[in-house]
Amino acid sequence: MTRAHDLGGRPAGDIPEKDDAVVFHVGWHAKALALNLACGALGAWNIDASRFAREQLRDYATLSYYEKWMAGLANLLVERGVVSEAELAGEVAKAPRSDKSLHAGDVPSAIRKVIPYLRSSGPAPHFQVGDRVRTVPAPGAGHCRLPAYAAGRVGTIILSHGNHVLPNSNARFQGENPQPLYTVEFTAAELWGEAAEATGDAMSLDLWQPYMRPA
């Protein structure tokens, strides 16, 4: 598991185009985003699976942002049986409009529709605001949303969000497995030691209960 996407804390250069106000720089950027949104509406995968598809790309580090979105989409379409490899290679027979396809007239409501990730099922919270917790020693295999820089660190719970869909299982189509979600605050010194820029600065992450133990 390379976790090529897990960038927090790595050395890097200057941040590009900080005042940029252009939404889509070229037409294919817009198309890559819209194709992802339109295909998401087909219901063959969920948001965690789409993130997992992108972070698993063998060429993650060299593909540009929207290239990742297109490559992840193409892989998911095949993996979920929506499009065959032959069709992806160009052998496509014309078919009638699917009932599942997103119609232009439904776009405004689809974008504004609120589909929460909060669930009423799942375990009771083991922790409450103010509790000290230690994160597990390393991000789990698969789609785990614990960044490596915060693994095995001690923090304090500052917000409790109820039970949210767990990305680890949802990304693999193994069920939503809702788990208590907390915002956990870490001091800069805890995360970075002597490399921390300033005493008293803090970092917060949104972490599920299976990612932590009592400290």
Partner: peptide, 8 residues
């Protein structure tokens, strides 16, 4: 995707 009727 348009040919297959999956995208409008």
């Amino acid at each position: 995707l348009v040919q297959k009727g999956l995208v409008d």
